[in-house]
């Protein structure tokens, strides 16, 4: 039964990741085979040209993306976790309105946000800097993080918080030593998304960091987008190279979620 599940799981993952495979396939394809009809299912006359182009130029960008991603996670949690705790458990007047505003805030088109930030960043001097990009990317994640964390933190039983209060813990202590540890899984979920959004962001990076000394990997793709021509094998190769370290990070993080849950279940 378990083995069957693994088999089904593998099959589903294969279907889901087929487009990713196709991207890998294209990344190895020679220019003259790109639009071959019917296409090669495997890189028959594979070329490493795309990867050569990428490895020569793209590695520094990966480091910047990593910093931006982690910075975004940190900033997002710093702002969202206390807010979610308050909305879920402290019942502020106007909390409903605020949640609603958070929801609507996400509807502002990214490019309009980027144009607004351009003006703000220019006057505050963070245009073309990594901290500026982190702040901009965090706007993708903060409303989401507050809403999701609120949904999960509402599930924390009152008794647990009351017990803490009886023990003499203040609001802050309760938050730090009870709410945060108990919410570990949802915090990891939120962190994952914050990281992913920052990692794959293109609009903010291209508006706010195009002239920067440190640019994320998504802008590295521009090396292969000319004004009349795009080098697709190199673009795809960049995406492949960019997704490897992040995938490893994801797998590790997901194991951590699973571990947390099983640990709880075992003790139960």
């Amino acid at each position: 039964m378990r083995r069957l599940k693994t088999a089904v799981g593998l099959a589903l993952t294969a279907v889901m990741l087929f487009p990713v495979y196709w991207m890998v396939n294209v990344s190895f394809t020679r220019d003259q085979d790109m639009r071959k009809s019917p296409p090669y299912w495997f890189p028959v006359h594979g070329t490493l040209e795309g990867y050569r182009a990428v490895l020569e130029r793209q590695l520094p960008y990966l480091g910047v993306s990593l910093v931006v991603g982690l910075g975004t996670v940190a900033l997002t949690l710093l702002i969202a976790a206390p807010a979610a705790y308050s909305l879920a458990k402290l019942r502020p007047r106007g909390g409903g309105v605020l949640s609603f505003v958070l929801l609507i805030a996400q509807m502002i088109p990214g490019i309009i946000m980027a144009m607004g930030f351009y003006a703000i960043f220019l006057t505050t001097g963070v245009l073309n800097t990594v901290p500026g990009l982190i702040v901009a990317d965090s706007t993708l994640a903060v409303p989401f993080a507050v809403l999701i964390l609120t949904a999960f933190m509402s599930g924390i039983p009152e008794e647990l918080l009351q017990a803490a209060r009886v023990d003499g813990a203040g609001v802050m202590r309760t938050f730090v030593s009870i709410v945060l540890p108990v919410s570990r899984n949802s915090i990891i979920t939120v962190s994952l998304f914050a990281f992913l959004w920052a990692w794959s962001d293109f609009v903010f990076a291209s508006t706010l960091d195009q002239g920067g000394a440190h640019q994320p990997i998504t802008l590295g793709i521009y090396h292969y987008i000319g004004n009349n021509n795009q080098e697709w094998n190199a673009i795809m190769a960049t995406a492949v190279v960019a997704s490897i370290p992040a995938t490893v990070l994801l797998i590790v993080a997901q194991r951590y979620v699973a571990a947390g849950v099983t640990a709880g279940a075992v003790k139960d």
Partner: peptide, 22 residues
């Protein structure tokens, strides 16, 4: 124009409308 060029580059097409840069 890039996609169109890629089609021509397969060697199957007789003609392709494209630019100086190719």
């Amino acid at each position: 124009q890039t996609t169109s060029w890629q089609e021509f580059a397969t060697g199957d097409f007789a003609f392709a409308e494209n630019g100086t840069w190719q």
